[in-house]
Amino acid sequence: MSNEPRDVIRGSTDAQTKTQEARMEGVDNRFNSKLREAFGSSPFILTKFDKFMNWVRGSSMFMLQFGIACCSIEMMHTYAVKHDLDRFGSGVPRASPRQADVMIVPGTIVTKFAPRMKRVYDQMPEPKFVVNMGSCAISGGPFQEGYNVIKGAEEVIPVDIHVPGCPPRPEALIYGVVKMQERIANGESSPVTVKPYELEQFSDLKQDELVDKLASQIDEDDLVMRYNWADSP
């Protein structure tokens, strides 16, 4: 896989072959199943199946019932009578992160909450998606200069869609969610949240080994956590 994953995804004509080559060359064995090898270079059935899976993931979404701040009030309105997000197949709130696909981050993240939010995100099963709702979740919003405020949820977890506004109107949130569904259905939003550099570095390792390898690098005695929000972008 190249260093520009976004280009690969967006590129118009040669994207398909590029990703295929990347898969076939064995750079990234995780996507390179035996089935793919068996079907050769034109895996018609598999691409159709991929398409179907993308459509499925984009069509049915269980939301995490997750309220943080002001935006959660508008989020409730989005689920409720007038706006009814459920029309788009994404309006089932699940209280348990184990059963949710999408996490809408509706509010300001502060230092005390950031680790907990990370934990909730980690508890969600793959493939999972995150919608950032409102300025606070994007950048800290009006509270950006606060001593306790984290400048955007993206400092903590990967985010698929940002919906700006303070707070965004329910229509805006619906637009954001539908846009994300579109992206997922078109295969533009990667269902596996692994960053490219991780792929290059650990591509030959299985998931468990990867965790083990990373864990062995941590020295428990001097590990520190830095809340250095002043320097962050």
Binding site: S59, M61, D84, R87, G89, D101
Partner: peptide, 19 residues
């Protein structure tokens, strides 16, 4: 409730199941 995924939202059934 669901009305965009297929007629009367019925395609949500296979979508949700497979998903």
């Amino acid at each position: 409730a669901v009305n965009r995924i297929g007629p009367a939202g019925l395609l949500i059934i296979p979508a949700a199941a497979v998903q």
